[in-house]
Nucleic acid binder design. Sequence first.
DNA 1: GTTGAATTGTTAAATTTTTAACTTATTTAA
DNA 2: TTAAATAAGTTAAAAATTTAACAATTCAAC
Lengths: 212, 212
Amino acid sequence: MSKENKRVSEAVIRRMPKYYRYLKEMKASGIKRISSRELSKKMGLTASQIRQDFNCFGGFGQQGYGYNVEELCDEIQKILGLHKEYNMIVIGAGNLGQALANYSGFEQEGFNIKALFDINPRLVGISIRGIPILDIDHIEGFLSQCEVHIAAICTPKKTAQEMVDRLIECGVKAIWNFAPIDVNAPDDVVVENVHLSDTLYTISLRMNEDYN
Amino acid sequence: MSKENKRVSEAVIRRMPKYYRYLKEMKASGIKRISSRELSKKMGLTASQIRQDFNCFGGFGQQGYGYNVEELCDEIQKILGLHKEYNMIVIGAGNLGQALANYSGFEQEGFNIKALFDINPRLVGISIRGIPILDIDHIEGFLSQCEVHIAAICTPKKTAQEMVDRLIECGVKAIWNFAPIDVNAPDDVVVENVHLSDTLYTISLRMNEDYN
DNA sequence: GTTGAATTGTTAAATTTTTAACTTATTTAA
DNA sequence: TTAAATAAGTTAAAAATTTAACAATTCAAC
């Protein structure tokens, strides 16, 4: 699928979901074609960058015409791996864990949350949009029965790494971490540390910067 | 405060919160000094980059010694603007909005959530950790009484931009947006679009990449 | 058909970012 | 007190990323 075997840079990878968001929106509103120039204006990027980015994965456009929105959207969907289905679990059923379970957008893209896990007996047993909250002690048993591709960590800081270790031990191959600590995992496990606070702190930095 | 008037790059800014996290942790655990080399090992960066980054803001270390953890931590706290207090509000009191209100970490850094706002009459009137949920229609009145520095947007996609416009009209100077759309604002308003889904999609991309 | 405008994919240049090297200052230990 | 080791700050080089330029192709109008 890739163009030659040249590695796609992190910078490009980080932009792909944004392209997908805009293209999905355009596709839904019936726009059939788009040029890199038009798209650049909508997205606040340069046309050159957009063409370079897409060409990391192949030539999706046509000279003199531009890009077919639906086709490009579908290609990027594939690049993002959204043509497949994933089983997910959420560790920690507090507000954030519940927020993830309640958001239907993930499921629409193939991310199926199979269960939440928590230590709190008041939460264990209830369910959210049909997704059960289970006791964290049953996690190993659950994972032996159900192949889970991605685990979202919504626990407090102090238990996050320990939970990650347990999950990886049971074969989970990707960690989406919201605990305010960088969790570590072997190289074959994909880890994404989110850190909501970090984005808030860049806001206050920019509100105060006299550095320019 | 800045070293000459050279603009600090976005890349450096994005790393500052991460430095702060690690330094705060070290300070709390009683570590007195750290070299760029040791810090680089902990954080997975290069020592050179760390020294370059810090020197964008001034010389905080000492040759032959390294950095005093507490001093450096305090400096970075200032760079991030965390020595000041901010009034915040949260628009949308669903799970995510409530998660923000429940997280005590923000307040510890000077971000004081004064109120949440929602349209849902079942939520209006109750409070979370003493923070009231108010009717969204009262937002303009509230903002005329209470100076709000930062607004977190936790509404559905379709109302996000409209809410942002109303808030800016009332003088809010920073937007922390969690709705799955890029919201726009005038140049004098700081906007941070978070997009949780984007980080999930980079996970699935990396799980599928044969691009290397 | 033919011509001109549009627009990609690609190559090259410019810029930014990261890494490495080096100079100078400080600490520690003999 | 001195010498060796350490380590920041700074300068230079390397690498990565972004932007610009351009050749090739397609579309649309006449």
